[in-house]
């Protein structure tokens, strides 16, 4: 509404040299190989051994990085004017059906100025604590995405100020739904699920201090606790 003579919109692609062709729909993308995102060279130069592996799958560059240095690397990608990955598209995790394969935490970043897309990955081998540094101090958008990832996979994002369940209710006792050992229909019988859901107070305002998943275990039915303690997996 105000006169906006000084207004300058942020135009994506502004970091590219003048006269660069406009972006086009990618065609005939090879399965493996293909052009590597130029950021990878800069990353290798800057972080060296922390860059563990680089794959180009279906035209997208995936960089596997050391899990403890993720926040540092993302911070550099965000701040460096030659990269300017200012847009965090997604944070999520992948667990494979092969139980030996490590769980992956995946970050999708976009550099609007250079029209680049990069995927960062941290591998979390089974048996190690599922912890990675949070990128919340860099991207506010990571807030709910990390909370969701914690809710669904149990991955702890160290440094997130308010890491608690987001989609399931606080005190949900069955575990982390998107883990592969979690059966599709849940661990409990339908009647038990409904009983627990109806017992929830719809007006509760949960805070992080009040409840945690570990406490909820004690509220389980007696037989369920015994079965889970004996290491039973209730898969289908």
């Amino acid at each position: 509404m105000s006169p906006s003579s000084s207004f300058a919109p942020v135009i994506p692609g502004s970091g590219l040299p003048a006269g660069s062709p406009a972006a086009t729909t990618p065609k005939q993308i090879p399965h493996r190989g293909g052009p590597v995102n130029p950021t990878v060279d800069a990353l290798r130069e800057k972080f060296g051994a922390a860059i563990q592996r680089v794959d180009v799958v279906w035209g997208e560059t995936s960089v596997v990085v050391e899990r403890s240095r993720v926040a540092e690397i993302v911070r550099w990608l965000h701040d460096d004017p030659g990269q300017s990955y200012v847009y965090l598209s997604d944070v999520t995790a992948v667990e494979f059906r092969d139980v030996e394969q490590p769980l992956e935490v995946v970050w999708h970043l976009r550099s609007l100025a250079f029209r680049r897309f990069i995927r960062l990955k941290a591998l979390l081998p089974k048996g190690t604590p599922l912890e990675v540094p949070s990128v919340y101090p860099i991207f506010k958008s990571a807030d709910w995405m990390e909370r969701e990832c914690y809710d669904m996979f149990g991955v702890k994002f160290v440094g997130h100020p308010d890491l608690r369940r987001l989609l399931m209710w606080e005190g949900y006792k069955e575990g982390f739904p998107l883990r592969k050992d979690f059966p599709l229909r849940g661990r409990f019988s339908r009647a038990e699920q409904l009983r627990q859901a109806l017992a929830a107070n719809p007006e509760a305002r949960y805070s992080k201090e009040e409840l945690s998943i570990a406490d909820a275990f004690e509220d389980l039915p007696q037989d369920m606790r015994a079965r889970l303690r004996s290491g039973e997996k209730t898969g289908e």
Partner: peptide
């Protein structure tokens, strides 16, 4: 004020 539109910047379906 950010002119980011996936159709223009990371096009698909020949939107360009």
């Amino acid at each position: 004020g950010v002119a980011y539109d996936v159709r223009k910047d990371f096009p698909y379906l020949d939107y360009e």
